[in-house]
Amino acid sequence: MRLSVVLSGLVTAIVVLAADQGSKWWVLHGLHLPEIGQVVILPVLNFTMVWNRGVTFGLLTGNSNFAHLALAVFALAVVIVLAIWLTRTQRLIIALPVGAIAGGALGNVADRLHYGAVVDFIQAHAFGYSWYVFNVADAAIVCGVAALVIDNLLPGRSDATASGAKNRG
């Protein structure tokens, strides 16, 4: 059971990474969004080209090579921690979001190393309000974190409970 849980998390990471990098390749080289700037998809959804040189939502923006490398190294360290967590979990409900977060982090690291910035292009908006421009990796990270928070808030739903650690006492 444990091996299948770990493999499920790894497959999730690979699928997220592939979807993220594939969508970014298409936006850059198929749609040519950097030249176009913006494409209206739906009344509430645009593809809008943004080169994010900062962290989440453009925070801590840095234009130096050191800043790009530091952010990439930090994200890789997070991925290593997530990989350790993945190998220790016995629950699929933990492995899938951990894999999604790791795959998303790797997708954004690939951008930083290749372009010096993260390719963001999805812009949701409604009623005069516009959310930050994001990408598939960002969406996977946010959904993964939300799933882990929800699981943690549910009574009796931690890895410790699943492994019987609380009942040994």
Rank of each mutant, 00 (worst) to 15 (best):
T12Q: 05
Q123D: 15
G58E: 12
G37S: 07
L92S: 06
I36A: 11
L59V: 07
G144T: 02
L71G: 10
V40T: 13
L59G: 01
G164T: 03
A100H: 07
L82A: 11
L7W: 11
N108T: 03
V5Q: 06
Y132P: 12
T56L: 07
A160Y: 06
M1I: 11
T48G: 02
V50N: 04
A105P: 04
V73W: 09
I94S: 12
M49F: 15
L76R: 01
P155N: 13
E35L: 02
I36Q: 09
V98P: 03
I122D: 11
F74E: 05
D151Q: 10
F57R: 08
Q38I: 05
S163I: 12
H68N: 14
A102D: 04
R2Q: 15
D138S: 09
I14F: 11
A75V: 01
Y132R: 03
L96I: 15
A70W: 15
A162I: 03
D111K: 06
L71N: 06
G103K: 03
V79M: 07
V79R: 07
S64E: 14
G156E: 13
S4V: 10
V109I: 10
R157D: 13
V118Q: 07
A137R: 04
G156D: 15
L86Y: 03
W85T: 08
A72D: 07
F121W: 02
L154W: 05
V136I: 14
V78M: 09
F127Q: 11
N65Q: 14
V79S: 08
L113C: 10
D138L: 10
L154H: 00
G9F: 00
L3I: 11
S23E: 01
G164Q: 01
F47P: 02
A13Y: 02
V27A: 08
P34H: 12
V136D: 04
R157F: 10
N152A: 14
T61C: 05
L76S: 06
I150C: 06
N167C: 00
Q123I: 04
H125S: 15
S4W: 15
I101P: 01
R168H: 10
G62E: 06
W85R: 04
L148W: 00
V73P: 00
Q90I: 09
L86G: 01
A100N: 05
L96E: 02
Q90M: 05
A13M: 05
A67D: 15
W131C: 10
S64C: 12
S158C: 04
A110K: 10
A165D: 11
A124E: 07
R53W: 09
V136G: 04
L96P: 07
V109D: 09
V81G: 14
Y129C: 08
Q38P: 00
V79A: 12
L148H: 00
S8H: 04
A126N: 10
L86W: 03
T12R: 06
I150W: 13
L17G: 01
R157I: 05
A13T: 00
L82Q: 09
G156F: 01
L113E: 12
A18T: 14
A18D: 03
I14M: 13
L45R: 05
T161A: 13
G37F: 05
A95K: 02
L113R: 07
V119N: 12
V39Y: 02
A140G: 02
Y129S: 13
